[in-house]
Nucleic acid binder design. Sequence first.
DNA 1: CCCAATTCGGTTGTGCACAATCAAACGGTG
DNA 2: CACCGTTTGATTGTGCACAACCGAATTGGG
Lengths: 167, 167
Amino acid sequence: MGKDLLRLDGQLCFAMYAACRAMDALYRRELAALGLTYPQYLVMLELWSRAADAGPNGEAAATVKQLGRALRLDSGTLSPLLKRLEAAGLVRRERDRHDERSVRVALTGQGHALRARAERVPARAHAASGLDAAEAEHLRRMLGRVTASLDLAVADADATTPAGPAA
Amino acid sequence: MGKDLLRLDGQLCFAMYAACRAMDALYRRELAALGLTYPQYLVMLELWSRAADAGPNGEAAATVKQLGRALRLDSGTLSPLLKRLEAAGLVRRERDRHDERSVRVALTGQGHALRARAERVPARAHAASGLDAAEAEHLRRMLGRVTASLDLAVADADATTPAGPAA
DNA sequence: CCCAATTCGGTTGTGCACAATCAAACGGTG
DNA sequence: CACCGTTTGATTGTGCACAACCGAATTGGG
């Protein structure tokens, strides 16, 4: 009894975990030519989106805080990642003049230029997934629901036990 | 043009990535009481399954290679992880007598005992996901299909370009 | 028997990811 | 103006995850 409850292959969490690593392996291949890791690619994606929104003359800059909210990553992860992107010449980082605590991240010319080569990546990834457009969208929505639900559960637990009693 | 193609929020890969991290955050909470990280929990899950299959007298041992296949992890990840589990007193590691290259990993008494407390974790995680049983199973199957498809795509690419030309 | 290739586990180096902690800067209050 | 609490980014420490490489042991061919 309980023999099947703890079975590895039947668990949703393991299916998600394995899918994530398979996806990471694929993107590792696709992004190697661009010199980007997957989280770096996500940061560039967000900056390219902002540049498109800002129009041809816009600045396409974001604070580390804003990037963290969009990507759901904290500064401890983003700070070294952004330094590597800066070292690669893809972004500039400079303190905000009006608020010296904030660091504004902006695309360089090279960063803008890389976008053209990155355009093809989503299509190749989509093809590798083996899903049609409707299935992919369905899966995306399901994952979005699960993420929201899990975030809520963790937030509730945090509210109940601010620092770690584990009854 | 192309403005939406690279949009962060519309990408399946990002939905998966975010869902994985949300799941990890939840399990971090649930497993903290057991003194396990999520990948460590997966290893224990596999060993508990093998113990159940082996019956009351079985040895419930697996080589690092076998664990790697079940969890889709390589030895470079598993070796230090298993050392930490050994340091925690949950597993023993010893060379196979017949093949000195292999290391066999077996549960200790403490490792077996932990199972009772771990039984509750999947139910709590399932509740937090906000899905009913049918939805969870559906999602699990979809992720399995995607994983298989992605694995195939990466393997094909490996076969075509054994070591990294990026044309 | 000896050599070459293969199969193992381990080690090293890079890069996320997060918790905990810190210092700087800002904002409001007295 | 001086003080306090908050916000923000950085730093530190732990733990995955994988690629690349290493050395030992096994296996197969000559």
